[in-house]
């Protein structure tokens, strides 16, 4: 398949089931919302070493938040319910509760329960107050600037992690421009996040490596500087830079929509923009439950 001069390889992205949740964080100002979100989603790029993958889903205007203040929706994904619960408690406890003026609410209602305020309430040292408002239950935890309001629990959803798009470009500047265009397009897809810095990965990995005990190592097949040295190199002639976008979503359809948006944005730049081709990472279809075939996604 060729779109605007960009070759779309006939391959697939291999993705995995993950458990995800959405949190809504509010604060007095957008700046403090960002402070909390940046802190909470920091070091959450890959479950390989971070425990979870997380990023801001979108900014929420005051009329879309429970307390009519500026806010943001954040998505977190982990490999198990226990790990997700642990990461939620740690990150909300250390990064949201600590941030001045914030409150934290559940962004999902249906599904397995993940403790939120229920896990953090003990910080109140006996002075915490449970409060039911309508059908929702909150914890009010006394803190030094007043009170941290936190919904008692959130819900988990069966999500998909590891959807990906790999952009092969003539040079680093062209590759970065294409990746940034794709990031902007994907961020408009509800329910999808790009957990890596700026939404882009430059150090894509393969499973294992030559060193004992290594879980992952550099994806030599996609390293342009090793093209001549690695027999299984997948770097075509004329490609100097390769960037990957890793996508997590709340459903298979969401990840597919995000991939479509990203590839479409890259294709819009076209060969004239220095993009050579688009491919995806997989493990031969043996590991992941989900396969996103690029030609089907773009059909």
């Amino acid at each position: 398949m060729r779109l605007n001069g960009v070759h779309i390889e006939d391959t697939f992205a291999e993705a995995f089931p993950m458990l995800g949740t959405r949190l809504v964080i509010t604060a007095d100002t957008p700046a403090w919302v960002q402070a909390a979100v940046v802190s909470m989603t920091g070091f959450a790029t890959s479950v390989i070493a971070c425990g979870c993958e997380a990023a801001m889903e979108r900014v929420l205007p005051p009329d879309e938040t429970p307390d009519s203040r500026p806010g943001a929706a954040v998505l977190l994904f982990a490999m198990s319910k226990a790990e997700l619960a642990k990461q939620v408690a740690r990150r909300v406890g250390q990064c949201v509760m600590t941030c001045p003026g914030t409150a934290c609410y559940a962004g999902l209602r249906d599904g397995p329960t993940i403790p939120l305020g229920n896990a953090l309430r003990y910080f109140g040292d006996g002075w915490q107050i449970a409060k039911r408002v309508g059908s929702r239950r909150y914890w009010r935890i006394p803190v030094m600037d007043g009170e941290f309001l936190c919904e008692a629990a959130t819900a988990a959803v069966d999500g998909v992690g590891g959807g990906n798009v790999i952009i092969l470009a003539a040079n680093r500047r062209a590759g970065l421009a294409a990746a940034q265009a794709a990031v902007l397009a994907i961020r408009d897809v509800p329910g999808a996040i790009l957990p890596f810095p700026g939404g882009v990965v430059r150090s894509g990995s393969k499973i294992g490596g030559k060193y004992k005990g290594l879980i992952a190592s550099t994806n030599t097949a996609f390293c342009p500087t090793l093209r001549a040295a690695v027999p299984a190199s997948l770097v075509p002639e004329g490609v100097e830079s390769i960037l990957e976008l890793v996508i997590d979503g709340v459903s298979e359809a969401t990840v597919a929509a995000a991939m479509r948006a990203g590839i479409g944005a890259v294709a819009d730049l076209g060969a004239a923009g220095g993009v050579v081709s688009v491919t995806a990472g997989n493990y031969g279809g043996k590991l992941g439950r989900y396969q996103f075939r690029l030609h089907e996604v773009m059909a």
Binding site: P66, D67, S68, A103, K131, V133, R136, Y138, R140, G146, E147, L149
Partner: peptide, 8 residues
């Protein structure tokens, strides 16, 4: 003080 839960 301010009590955010009052808004909810």
């Amino acid at each position: 003080n301010d009590w955010l839960f009052l808004d909810l």
